[in-house]
Amino acid sequence: MTFSLAGRCARTGMLGAIVTTSSIAVGSRCQHAAAGVGAALTQHMTDPRLGPLMLDLLKRGYTAQQAIDAAAAGTPRGDWRQLALIDREGRTASFSGANVQPELAEAHGRDCVALGNIVRSKEVPDAMVRAFEADPEAPLAARLIAALKAGDEAGGEFKPLVSTALVVVHEHAFPYVDLRVDSDPDPIATLARLWREYEPTADLYVTRATDPDTAIANRPKQS
């Protein structure tokens, strides 16, 4: 009962992931990203340890496929897990254990990989990939949100969605964007609104962290 996508912006090198589900606090469990490394998804009887594990394996020189294989083999009851991974070059891998519940599907595209389980249609991940690929010049966060909307429009879940989460990383250890929505009757729309509000300030918050003097110098003057 989750659908998600991990993606990369070839233009900027940003990496990110987005996920939604009918249970609360999906952002605390399912999506992970590390700047210059990759983005990972772990869902269905979710083991939140697997996202950081897959990213660590990428750092150690594993390919995306090798990292997925190692994570699936190393987790207790890997037959219940659904995983996806993209590396900094846009190479992808995915895994669905034998006990992942239908409808389930995986889809790979240019600089992206999508997953779905307990969704209305196997088309959900394919629709997400198409939407993500549609506008490669758009900001990565906007492309990820467009993908999630497309997955919902392609059938989405059987139960009402209540939570969603978006993470994007760029050049630093902290996220460029980290937005979460919980207990909301329309979490995808709310996430899209939050991104519209946050987008004009995203670069500013990076500058405040890395170069406070410049941030102060560029602060709007009081009239």
Rank of each mutant, 00 (worst) to 15 (best):
M1N: 10
T2S: 02
F3K: 03
S4C: 10
S4R: 05
A6G: 05
R8I: 01
C9I: 05
C9N: 06
C9Q: 03
A10Q: 03
T12S: 05
G13E: 02
M14C: 08
M14S: 08
A17Q: 13
T20A: 13
T21A: 13
T21H: 04
A25K: 07
V37P: 09
G38I: 01
A40V: 02
L41N: 07
H44K: 02
T46M: 02
P48V: 07
P48S: 10
L50Q: 05
P52T: 09
L53C: 14
L55H: 07
D56M: 11
D56A: 14
D56P: 11
D56G: 15
L57W: 05
L57F: 09
L58W: 05
K59P: 10
R60P: 10
R60V: 06
G61Y: 03
G61L: 00
G61S: 00
Q66A: 15
Q66E: 13
Q66V: 04
I68E: 03
A70T: 13
A72L: 00
G74K: 09
R77F: 10
W80E: 14
Q82N: 00
A84E: 03
D87M: 01
G90M: 03
A93K: 00
A93G: 03
S94F: 01
F95T: 05
S96C: 09
V100L: 01
Q101A: 13
E103N: 13
L104Y: 05
L104V: 11
A105M: 00
H108C: 09
G109V: 08
G109K: 07
C112A: 12
V113F: 06
A114T: 04
G116V: 01
V124I: 00
P125A: 04
M128F: 02
V129H: 08
A131Q: 07
A134F: 11
P136I: 03
A138E: 09
P139K: 11
A141N: 12
A142G: 13
R143S: 08
R143F: 08
L144V: 03
L144S: 03
A146R: 13
A147S: 14
L148D: 09
K149C: 14
K149F: 15
D152Y: 06
D152I: 05
E153W: 01
A154R: 02
A154K: 02
A154V: 01
G156Q: 04
E157S: 14
F158T: 13
F158N: 12
K159M: 13
L161W: 06
T164Q: 11
T164Y: 08
A165F: 10
L166T: 08
V167S: 07
V169R: 03
E171N: 05
E171G: 05
A173F: 11
F174S: 11
P175N: 02
V177I: 15
L179P: 07
L179K: 12
R180S: 09
R180W: 06
D182V: 06
S183M: 15
S183Q: 14
P185F: 10
D186F: 08
P187R: 11
A189D: 15
T190M: 15
L191D: 10
A192T: 14
A192M: 12
L194K: 14
R196I: 12
R196Y: 11
Y198M: 15
P200D: 07
T201Y: 14
A202V: 10
L204N: 07
T207G: 00
R208P: 04
A209T: 07
T210F: 01
A215M: 02
A215R: 04
A217E: 14
R219Q: 15
P220F: 00
K221A: 14
K221Y: 09
